[in-house]
Design a protein around this nucleic acid. Structure first.
Lengths: 74, 74
DNA sequence: CTCCCATGTATAAAAAACTTGACATCACGA
DNA sequence: TCGTGATGTCAAGTTTTTTATACATGGGAG
């Protein structure tokens, strides 16, 4: 069930840059559970596009500012 | 199983802009099945972030050039 | 010390994404 | 006309993502 995703993210940094926003609050803002935020922040799997968009929107930054995809695939 | 996604995309246009690339070829390039390309192109559901990145990469455009997310969420 | 709060872990189960294979249609060329 | 390629649909099945609960830990405040 575990899929170490290739996509990395800057969510933790963005949270802190936005007034020490907690995982719970972020989860609440994007309408998902805290578990999901934790899993994504830790890169346990990559989120759906929709969630990615919502996260970027909370921080008012472009998608590529939140998520990074490595050049070469595996 | 059907989830009318809010995310829209410009895949079809991008395919044509790139030498009339067929759905089958695009699917092949991003490593998914033709069915998946069709479903996404039609907006039946939103792809995973990874797939979104791969699609953007095929067309060498930024993510936001391929997918659009409406301002207000439901 | 004791009580929260933020973070994290674990599990099971639901939901969404993706696959496989089979089949239908339409346009186009041989 | 026949065949082939591109697009699309349907249904069933697998995998990944997300939820829901419950519990553990460490730090800070009172």
């Amino acid at each position: 069930m575990a899929k170490p995703t290739k996509v990395t993210n800057s969510i933790r940094a963005l949270r802190f840059a936005h007034g020490e926003m907690t995982q719970a609050e972020l989860a609440d803002r994007i309408g998902v559970t805290r578990q999901t935020v934790i899993a994504i922040e830790q890169g346990r799997y990559s989120p759906s596009l929709e969630m990615a968009f919502q996260i970027a929107r909370v921080f008012t930054v472009p998608l590529d500012d939140v998520f990074q995809y490595p050049d070469t695939e595996e």
